[in-house]
Design a protein around this nucleic acid. Structure first.
Length: 565
DNA sequence: GCCGTTTTCGGCCCGACTGTTTTCAGTCG
């Protein structure tokens, strides 16, 4: 599927057109790129149906460019722009404070076309003589380049959320209200920064407290109502303070996404209303803004959960009264991917069961690794038989809690599971997973996994794309075929809750649901701490528009056993 | 380049903050 590649190409075209000082075309390309990025269906299929121009933001022109890419892997406009604007000029856009206007000017007036050249020119004080640049800009450029070298870019949701929650708690006594906003509140699997919104009559006190927190390394900017800092680990955090009457409008605004907000505001505009972070206005009169719900109500929409706000059809669905009744954390009764000290986990069967019970789960499935995964001390048939006995023994001791037997079986290169069917069929839950030969060509990898799913004993496909965020790309795979096959064979697709996996992610989850597949939540727990990762998986499920009925884990243990039989 | 309860042209979200200018352009979210 080429959706992501095409989105990237369109983003790059937008940046280049920006640098060329084009007026509205960059916005159009960027909009189209965003739509494609969040699209729950392969562009190729949409083109075959002749429906490309039916997509929001995609007209005749961009549809043609998409076609070009699908046919040749290239877009001629993109190639042409590349000869005019070197890649290095685009790299400069990543420096904080540097946008297309400045990068363009630097390139045209000084021939600067890479980060290295920019750094050199700044050190030699050659930049300050340009119009619109000065001594401070030069210093900020050097500081920004330094920062770029240190940071890895986006941070995992699982790392950023605890840090944000700690900051929120440190400030709670100084404010009337406080909330995390931004992509963190939308539960995006990676976040670029932490956004926090607070209500206070005395913003200065809050700003001061924020910029003086022990974890703050550097204050980037500090105004009357807005402060930006860098926390330890080079994570940027923004705090905005508003009055109580504007909290809803501001929370809505700062939660985003940007595209969701732009879409919302253009609808408001057509209704003769204006929305900003202070409220909803009809002429000069403020008609709402205290609560987030008001904003949507005034636009004739029902409330939308933050996880839905990607401008991926949620606004239209809301207007039609067709929003999903999203799954909640409380709906999740069990965890279907758990390791113990029988393979590479850190806890005993009983230890992990008690910890899961303490966190409110009603059951877990013990799914240790199987024998092929020697590095993780995977279980042989004989060891698994012993473990099953042990699981049943511990299960009998537990009150109001069920432990299911299971395995995370390796899917071998030929598509077979690495344990004998005679033992697999005795287990409650068989999770199948690819842990080897990630570099297979797409066709082979797809057939390998499809073959495994056709094994009637396999219930769940673990981490279906194999990606490790920031470390390993997904393997080559016809993901749509996998989803169709999952629906056909009643194999659930896992939403792996581990912070660096979160795979399937939102758009994929939505595709899978539309293909008719069920999903399963698994924390891939290796220690008691990991059990809480379930909330990140629920985040992906909600981002994928899932309802309670779409997820295996919302069944009771008995219902699940019956379903899997 | 896209879109339409402003419909085939004319507009495209909106405000805070900074650094450069002396009234505002550029960046950011």
């Amino acid at each position: 599927m080429k959706n992501q590649e095409i989105a990237r190409a369109l983003y790059e075209i937008a940046d280049m057109l920006d640098i060329k000082n084009e007026q509205f075309t960059p916005r159009a390309y960027r909009w189209a790129a965003r739509v494609i990025e969040e699209l729950p269906e392969d562009l190729e299929k949409i083109r075959k149906r002749g429906e490309l121009t039916g997509l929001q933001g995609i007209g005749k022109n961009i549809a043609k460019k998409i076609g070009e890419y699908l046919d040749s892997g290239k877009i001629s406009l993109h190639e042409r722009l590349r000869t005019e604007i070197p890649q290095g000029v685009l790299d400069i856009l990543a420096v904080p404070g540097m946008g297309p206007k400045k990068a363009g000017l630097l390139y045209r007036e000084r021939g600067i076309s890479s980060l290295d050249e920019l750094e050199k020119a700044a050190r030699e004080r050659r930049i300050r003589r340009l119009r619109g640049f000065g001594e401070k800009t030069e210093k900020n450029i050097l500081k920004g380049i330094e920062m770029l070298k240190r940071t890895k870019g986006r941070m995992l949701l699982g790392e950023a959320l605890p840090i944000a929650e700690e900051v929120v708690e440190s400030l709670r006594s100084k404010v009337e209200k406080i909330s995390v906003a931004g992509s963190l509140r939308r539960m995006k699997e990676t976040v670029g920064d932490i956004d926090i919104l607070a209500v206070s009559e005395n913003p200065k006190v809050v700003m001061d407290a924020f910029s003086n927190l022990p974890q703050v390394e550097d204050v980037v900017l500090k105004g009357k109502t807005k402060t930006t800092v860098y926390l330890e680990g080079d994570l940027q955090a923004d705090l905005r303070v508003v009055e109580s009457g504007s909290f809803g409008a501001a929370l809505q605004y700062f939660t985003g996404s940007k595209d969701h907000n732009i879409h919302l505001r253009s609808i408001a505009q057509r209704m003769g209303l204006k929305i900003n972070e202070y409220g909803v206005f009809e002429g000069d009169e403020k008609i709402g803004g205290k609560a987030e719900e008001e904003i949507y109500e005034l636009l004739g929409m029902s409330y939308m959960a933050p996880e839905l706000r990607e401008d991926a059809g949620e606004i239209e669905a809301s207007l039609d009264g067709k929003l999903p009744d999203l799954i909640e954390l409380e709906d999740v009764k069990g965890d279907l991917h758990v390791h113990t000290d029988w393979s590479d986990g850190g806890k005993s069967i009983q230890g992990i069961a008690e910890a899961a019970k303490a966190q409110g789960r009603e059951y877990i499935a013990i799914t240790d690794h199987s024998k092929s995964l020697k590095i993780a001390n995977g279980l042989s048939e004989e060891e698994l038989e012993l473990q099953v006995k042990e699981v049943r023994k511990v299960d009998r001791k537990m009150k109001d809690f069920k432990i299911l037997t299971g395995i995370e079986a390796d899917i071998k290169n030929n598509g077979e599971l690495d344990l004998d069917d005679s033992i697999l069929k005795e287990l409650d839950v068989v999770v199948g997973a690819v842990h080897s030969k990630f570099s297979m060509p797409e066709r082979q990898m797809t057939e390998r996994i499809v073959d495994a799913m056709r094994n009637e004993n396999m219930d769940i496909l673990a981490h279906p794309t194999g990606r490790l965020i920031g470390r390993r790309d997904p393997y080559e795979l016809d993901i749509e075929e996998i989803m169709d096959e999952a629906a056909e064979t009643r194999t659930a697709l896992e939403i792996n809750c581990f912070p660096d996996r979160l795979d399937l992610n939102g758009p994929h989850v939505r595709m899978a649901k539309e293909a008719g597949a069920k999903m399963s939540l698994g924390t891939d727990t290796h220690s008691t701490r990991d059990l809480q990762f379930i909330k990140f998986g629920v985040g992906m499920a909600r981002r994928g528009w899932l309802e309670k009925e779409d997820v295996l884990n919302t069944m009771t243990a008995e219902e699940l056993r019956a379903y899997l039989r």
